[in-house]
Amino acid sequence: EDTPTSDDLEQFAKQFKQRRIKLGFTQADVGLALGTLYGNVFSQTTICRFEALQLSFKNMCKLKPLLNKWLEEADSS
């Protein structure tokens, strides 16, 4: 899998936040949902820092596919 560039991550974080708000989920909701879906719960702080691009590049890269999958799930339900 290609490592995203920081531009990709920035773009995704922006879109993710917009979609999340549009779908009516809080950052805490997302963190809990990730726990339900993938077995690891993320704190509201982590989601907040992802959206604000304040996590390390490595952590951003790790979270992106999970959040992307969550968006697909949320969109289809």
Rank of each mutant, 00 (worst) to 15 (best):
Q27G: 04
D2P: 08
S6K: 15
E1S: 07
K22N: 09
Q27D: 04
Y38W: 05
T26W: 00
R20T: 00
G35Q: 14
L55I: 04
E10M: 13
E72T: 10
F57N: 14
L23R: 06
S56I: 02
S77C: 07
K22L: 11
A13R: 03
V41E: 14
D75A: 13
G31T: 09
N59P: 03
L63Q: 00
K69A: 09
Q54S: 08
V41N: 13
K17F: 00
G39K: 06
A28C: 07
N68C: 09
N40V: 10
E72M: 09
T5G: 11
T3N: 07
Q18D: 10
C61K: 11
K69M: 15
G24C: 03
L53G: 14
E1M: 14
F12M: 06
D75R: 10
K69P: 00
L9A: 03
F25Y: 14
D8T: 09
G35D: 04
I47T: 02
G35C: 09
I21D: 03
T45Q: 13
T46R: 04
F16C: 01
L67D: 01
A52G: 10
Q27A: 10
V30M: 02
A28R: 10
E1R: 10
G39V: 00
E10A: 13
S6P: 15
K58E: 15
T3W: 07
L53D: 04
F12W: 06
Y38K: 06
W70K: 01
A13I: 09
A33Y: 05
I21Q: 13
T26G: 04
T26D: 02
R49E: 14
C61T: 07
T36H: 13
Q11A: 13
R19D: 05
W70Y: 04
L63P: 00
Q44D: 12
F57E: 10
K58L: 07
Q27E: 12
E73I: 12
W70D: 04
M60Y: 02
L63S: 02
Y38R: 06
G24E: 02
L55V: 03
L37K: 13
G39P: 12
Q27K: 08
T5D: 11
G39Y: 03
Q44I: 06
D8C: 09
G24D: 03
L9G: 02
T45P: 06
D7M: 14
N40W: 05
D75P: 09
Q15G: 08
Q11K: 13
F50L: 03
S76K: 13
L53P: 00
K58C: 05
N40I: 11
F42T: 10
C48Q: 15
Q27M: 04
N40L: 07
Q15S: 13
Q27L: 07
R49I: 00
M60A: 07
Q11L: 11
Q18N: 05
L34P: 01
I47C: 01
L67M: 13
L9P: 03
I21W: 03
C48V: 09
R19N: 07
F12R: 04
C48N: 10
Q54H: 07
K62L: 12
M60E: 01
Y38Q: 08
F50R: 00
I47V: 09
E72N: 09
A74W: 07
L55S: 03
F42N: 03
L23V: 02
K58P: 09
L66D: 01
L66P: 04
K69G: 13
V41T: 13
A52M: 10
T45W: 07
Q54A: 08
T26A: 04
P65D: 09
T26H: 05
E10T: 09
G24H: 03
R19P: 00
T45S: 12
L55G: 02
T3P: 06
F50T: 02
N40Y: 12
L66C: 06
Q54Y: 01
D75N: 11
K14H: 01
N40R: 13
Q44T: 12
Q18I: 06
V30W: 01
F16K: 02
D2M: 13
S76P: 12
D7E: 10
I47L: 06
K14V: 08
K14Q: 15
A28E: 14
L34A: 02
A74F: 08
A74Q: 11
F25A: 07
E51D: 02
C48R: 13
K58H: 03
T46K: 04
D8Q: 14
L66S: 04
L9Y: 03
Q11I: 10
L37A: 12
Q18L: 08
E1D: 12
D75Y: 11
G35E: 10
T5F: 09
T5N: 14
L32F: 06
L37T: 14
L71G: 04
P65E: 08
F16W: 02
D29V: 02
N68G: 15
D2K: 11
T36C: 08
G39T: 05
A52Q: 14
F50S: 01
S43G: 09
A33P: 00
L71F: 02
N68S: 15
G24M: 01
E1V: 09
G35W: 06
S77H: 12
Y38P: 04
E72V: 13
L9H: 04
K58T: 11
I21T: 07
L67P: 02
I47H: 02
L23C: 05
C61L: 13
D8A: 12
R49Y: 03
C61E: 08
G24Q: 03
F16R: 02
D29W: 02
N59I: 15
S77G: 15
L32R: 11
F25Q: 04
M60V: 03
Q15Y: 15
T26V: 01
A28F: 03
G35V: 04
L34R: 01
Q44W: 04
T46Q: 10
K69C: 04
C61A: 09
L34G: 00
S43N: 13
G39S: 05
S76W: 07
N68M: 05
K22T: 08
L71W: 03
L32V: 04
C61G: 05
L55H: 06
F25I: 09
K69H: 07
P65H: 11
L53S: 12
Q18Y: 05
A52W: 03
P65Q: 15
V30D: 01
S77A: 15
E10I: 10
Q15N: 15
Q18T: 12
V30P: 03
R20Y: 02
L67V: 03
I21E: 12
Y38H: 12
L23P: 00
K64W: 07
T45I: 06
L32Y: 07
K62A: 11
Q11D: 09
P65W: 07
A28T: 07
L32G: 15
G35K: 14
D8W: 04
A13C: 08
K62M: 13
L63K: 01
E51F: 00
S56G: 09
L37C: 11
K69E: 06
G24Y: 00
E72G: 07
F57G: 06
F25K: 10
L9Q: 03
E73R: 08
V30Y: 02
A74Y: 08
D29I: 03
A33C: 07
D75L: 08
N40P: 12
Q11P: 02
L9K: 02
G31K: 04
L37F: 11
K17S: 05
G35I: 04
K14L: 10
D75E: 15
K62H: 08
Y38N: 11
D2Y: 11
I21R: 07
S56V: 00
N68W: 13
S77I: 11
T26K: 04
L67F: 04
Q18F: 07
L32S: 07
F16V: 02
N40Q: 15
K17V: 05
V41W: 13
K17D: 00
Q27T: 14
P4I: 15
F12L: 01
E51T: 00
T36Q: 11
R20G: 00
F42D: 05
F16T: 02
K17N: 00
F12P: 00
K62Q: 13
S6T: 15
F42G: 04
F25M: 09
T3I: 15
R19E: 09
F42K: 08
A13G: 02
P4Y: 09
V30I: 06
Q27V: 09
S77E: 12
M60C: 04
N68R: 12
L71M: 15
C61D: 05
M60N: 03
Q11S: 11
Q27S: 08
K69R: 13
L34C: 06
